[in-house]
Design a protein around this nucleic acid. Structure first.
Length: 107
DNA sequence: GGGGTGACCCAGT
DNA sequence: TACTGGGCCACCC
């Protein structure tokens, strides 16, 4: 079906689809996204998710995706911070308070 | 076939 | 907290 691991485009779609499901005020790390899709696609990794976001993130809520440390993507720190603050996400200095806002599809 | 690159991650210092 | 080194995987020359 649409989840054909042999088609790279399907993985991209799955990543973007998952990002769209992140509730406002919550965030996910690149690694967490890779982990969440692992059962379905098996392949991929945090690094790949990052590349996908860099290329196609513009069409989704890219600012809800941060690295494992809670840092916002390079070059977009200000924009990400503004949007996240507007959604009620707490910051600790320059990073998101992951312990408080990290989200996982299971919820 | 070989080597460099990247919106990553983790452990060690 | 910051920096370093190793591992990771797909993509591009």
């Amino acid at each position: 079906m649409a989840t054909d691991p042999s088609d790279p485009a399907e993985y991209v779609e799955a990543v973007l689809d998952l990002v769209e499901r992140i509730p406002p005020g919550r965030v996910m790390s690149y690694g967490a996204i890779a982990e969440a899709l692992a059962p379905r696609f098996g392949r991929g990794g945090a690094r790949r998710v990052g590349t996908i976001m860099a290329l196609h993130g513009g069409s989704v809520a890219w600012y809800r995706v941060v690295n494992a440390s809670g840092r916002t993507p390079p070059g977009h720190e200000l924009a990400a911070r503004r949007r996240l603050l507007a959604e009620g996400v707490a910051f600790r200095g320059e990073r998101v308070d992951m312990a408080r806002h990290a989200w996982f599809p299971d919820e």
